[in-house]
Every structure is written in C-alpha cells, then in structure tokens.
Design a protein around this nucleic acid. Sequence first.
RNA 1: CGGGGCGUAGCGCAGCCUGGUAGCGCAUCUGCUUUGGGAGCAGAGGGCCGGGGGUUCGAAUCCCUCCGCCCCGACCA
Length: 581
Amino acid sequence: MHRWSRLFIPTLREAPADAVVASHQILVRAGYIRQLGAGIYNYLFLGTRSINKIVAIVREEMDKIGQEFYLPALNPAEIWQESGRWTGMGENMFRLKDRKGADLCLGMTHEEVMTSIARDEVRSYKQLPQIWYQIQTKFRDEPRPKSGLLRVRQFTMKDSYSFDIDEAGLDVSYRLHDEAYRRIFTRCGLEFVAVEADSGAMGGSQSQEFMVYTEAGEDLIASSPDGKYAANIEKATALLAVVEDLPDAELEEVHTPGQRTIEEVGAFLKTQPHHQVKTMAMMAVWPDGKAKSVVAFLRGDHQLNETKLASLVGGAELRPMQPEEIASIFNAPAGYLGPIGLKQSDKLMIVLDKALEGRRNLIAGANKEEFHLRNVTPGVHFNDFVVADVRTVTEGEPDPIGGQPLRIGKAVEIGHIFKLGYKYTESMGARVLDQNGKEVMPIMGCYGIGIERILTSAMELSAAKKGLTDRGDLQYALPPSIAPFEVVITVTKQNDASLAEAGEKIARDLEAAGFDVLLDDRDQSAGVKFKDADLIGVPYRVNIGKKLAEGKVELVDRLSDTVTEHGVGDVVAQLKSAFQK
RNA sequence: CGGGGCGUAGCGCAGCCUGGUAGCGCAUCUGCUUUGGGAGCAGAGGGCCGGGGGUUCGAAUCCCUCCGCCCCGACCA
C-alpha cells in the first residue's frame, strides 16, 4: 500500500509559465513530470506509474497478435544507409560518432532494424506471417518540441512490424492491428476516431490514423457523428448540396474595375460566391528544383486543399505564384484570372475541382484587367483540364457515406497503422522462398502507438469536458485503467486516531480486493488533501471524516462528480461493483 | 530556419527605463494554535540576478557576445 506521507509527489499551486496546454499544466502541477530540456522530460513517480499502466494494456493486447522484442535505440549508420534514410531522414535524426569515428544514430523508428532481422533470419514462406513489436524509447530531433509531452524529442512508442508472403497476408496483419488498437484505446478510456490518412511520402497503399479530438492537437480531422466516416482534412471529402445555376445566357464580358476578390465581385455583380470560379495559381516545386505551374479552378466559396493538389501533381511542394509567374501564363494580374484561353503543357497543369463539374453560367475572371466574364460553362467555353477533388471540406457538409454533417476539429494522433509494402524488404534485400522455391520479397506493414500521448489526450479530454473552476483552475480525472491509482483515501483529520485507523483498514481491504490504493495519511488540512487528490486525477476518492462517528464514509466519483455515503463496511463492495472487480 | 517573448530562491513574479550591499507571494524548516476545499501567529533557511567579456569607483540594471527556454510560422515517415 502506498502512503502519501512517504511519497514524492511534488504538487504545485501554480503552473509554470511555460505550460500552455491543459495536459502540460496538469502533468507539471500534479508532479507527474519535470522538464530536463526542450522536449526532454523526467517522469516522476506518478508519471511513471501511469505510463506503466498504459504500457501494460498495450502489451497485453499486442501479445494477442504478435511477439515482443526489445531492440537497440543506438543504431549503426549502415542499416540506415542501406534503406536510404540516413540521408532521407535529414535533420530529424540524432546522429553521433563512436570513439573510432564510426557513424551511429538514435533510432526514430525501427523499420531498418526489424527488416535486418527478417533479412538475416527468415528464409521460407513457412516462417511467415510474423508480427514483431516492441515498446521502446524513440528519439527525434523535432524542429519545435512543444506542449509538454505532446511533441517531444524523446518518447515511448509501441512500434510493430508485420512480414507477410503476400498482400492478402498483409491485409490480415493490418486488420489484426486495427482491432488491437481499438481494444487498446478503448481500455485506456479514450474517445477516438480512426481516420483515413494521406499515405504521404512513404508510398504505402493504405494508412489509418487513430485520433483524439482536442484543441491541443496539431492535425485537423473531419468525421461524421455516427463514426462511419472519418478522415484527415488533407484527404476528407464531402457530398455537396446541389446548387442551382444561374439561368442560361450568352457569354458576356463585364467591366469590373477594382473588383478583385470573390466578395467584391459577388457584391458588384450581385451574385453568390458559389456562382463564381476561384482561380488558384500555384507553383509546384520538387526537391531537385524542377518546377511546374499548376492552375486550379474552384467554386468561389471553396478553399484549396494543398495536400490534395500536391499529391495530384506528384508529391511536390506548392506555393503561390509570384506576379511575374502569373504574367507568364495569364494576360491579367491576380484578381482577373480565369480559365478561358489556357492550354495544358508539360509546364502547366490545369485542374478543375470536382465541385465545378457540370456547373453552368459561372462568373470568372476574363484574363483581361478590370474585366470578368458572365455565363462561363466548363466543358463548353474551356475544355483543357483534369477534373479532381482539390478542395477542403468544411464543418457541417454532408459526409460521403451517410450524408451526415461533418465535424471538423483539431486532433492528436495517438496511433497509426500503415501498409508499407516492399520499400524496406526491397532496399535491404529481404527474400524468402515461396511454395515454388522461388525467391520473393516479403511485404511489410508498420504500426505505431504514442504511449505518452495516450496519457496526455486522456488529460486533455477530461479537462475539456470538466472545464474550469470558478477560480479558473483546471479540473480533470483520469480513466481508472491509466490513473496512477484507482482510489485515494483521504483521512480528513490524520491526528484523530479513529479516522486514521479507519483509513488504514479500508486501504488494506481495498488492496486485498485488488485495488491500487493511495492512502493520504499526511498531517495536512482536509482542504489541502482534497485539492491534491483532485490534482493528481485519481478517479475515486473515499473521504474519512466526521460521519465516521455514524459508521459512514463518503465515496466521491470524480468522473461523474457524484458523492455517495456508505457504511464503513460497504464501501469496498461498492467500489468493487463500480470497477466490476 | 524566419518572427516574437522570457531567463532574478523550488514555483509565480517585482526590481532594470533613471547603476549605489536583491525584494514580494506561495512552497520549505522550527514552535504553538488549527483541521470538510490550497489555515493562523511567531521565527528561520534558501540567490554565481543564465554564462563570458566590456564600460564604470561601483553592474541584476548600460554595451557586446554566447547559451537556454517558451510562443507563432515553416517543418513534423
């Protein structure tokens, strides 16, 4: 049993000025962590306890589908050179030299190490499939560590890797992870959504991120209320309500001096933004310096989605065109750009957003300074374009599956599952013999979970739900499965022997019943003890105080904020039923 | 890497502009009184004022420089 009087739980009355997001303030104030450097934290007693509980859940679920390894964080450069990531990872990799001058790095992920094991040891299809995982410290030299434990340079990750003989096998490994992750996050008490993710530069075929909605997050995601559709905003699509076009009429040039923006033109011509064409003139630039002009036409009230457009162009970086670049393609300056008269070439790509397909009688720039055109119809007045979805969905638009209003919000990524393909087995030369004795490459998947992010998102979720006290203090409670303790027993007057003894007894009984108990036996005022108990986020509290004379104690459920009275002998049974122990 | 801010006791801050022996609140320690929502009184300890250099009789304060940390952006398989 843990007695608070003997523990190191350095709670603070005020949060350090550095801490901005709720979880960071809580972690420091409650004595879970202390900072050692930018993005580097000491995990103290409470922090370690919570992390260990999360790790235990992850391990239990992962053991159902895979085998645990423990691989070195210190890696020789060679394997990273083989995969091409020694240079590919760039500045984000911590690098060092040993005494002989050989290059080493600290692992940011373990595809290379895992693949090297598979390459050296796995010879036959009979040994496949394999799912290997580890729970390990990762190092990433983030350009900007921030938000406490949300973005750090050293953190704990559960990473697993699957090796299969073919894509059907990979599908199974992927699905096993999907299911295991849902069990893990559910057991950790999180509300999460699984979103379709952009597979990005990894070039894999399928990828899903597990996200928790919170203002502290760095990604934007869209999801439907029934949970059937969810996607990163970089990929999300939506059904659009049918909009009525303006009545048919002849193409007509109108003088629009000084009217450049969608709003100005709309007001000037007394039309709605959705009757207009927005022209986005962009330059796509590749790492090797190659560049291509990309002009995208969108509905006036829509926003360009740069990620969608970038992946359409083929993984280049996008930036707005400079005025000279605009002048080289159009006959007018920004504000009067339009679709008519442009021709695609290997220097210019023209994209019509899907939302404009089939629309008629639109208003667009005339490619002539101070003029716009009325009654422009794609496919009639201009033809040279590719149609693609390159717009960003907005809050409330109907989701593409059930047509329900999309919710868009910031979110934290707590896990990611990814069909990797052959990238590493190919570059590192992993081969096995198939049934026909033919050499084939195993196909891989990789799957990650950010352990600390489970704790921080649980704190963020609860803090957001409970809101601030009247005095502006944060309030929260952790899910019992990941709280450092399940129950705290608050002896309101420690120097009253009957209260102290009752506390000891209930603590012993709870422990015997399998609970993780913290007995607050400090000689402090009741107020201090209550505040501290709240601060460390323990979900249940037993108050031992005045009512003990009547044989009663209070049980505070901090998840629902309810207080109930129980006989001294009944409180254990009460908690057992609450926990289903 | 671009922009902004900050570094003074464990935490939160004042002092700096206008140079003259470093302060407040909380926390800590001792004693007494207290004890249902961060108690009261009395006393005490705790500082390379981020580092280095300079100006000056004298620097937390002015100047130069380096370092660290935070925020916004870029970046983030």
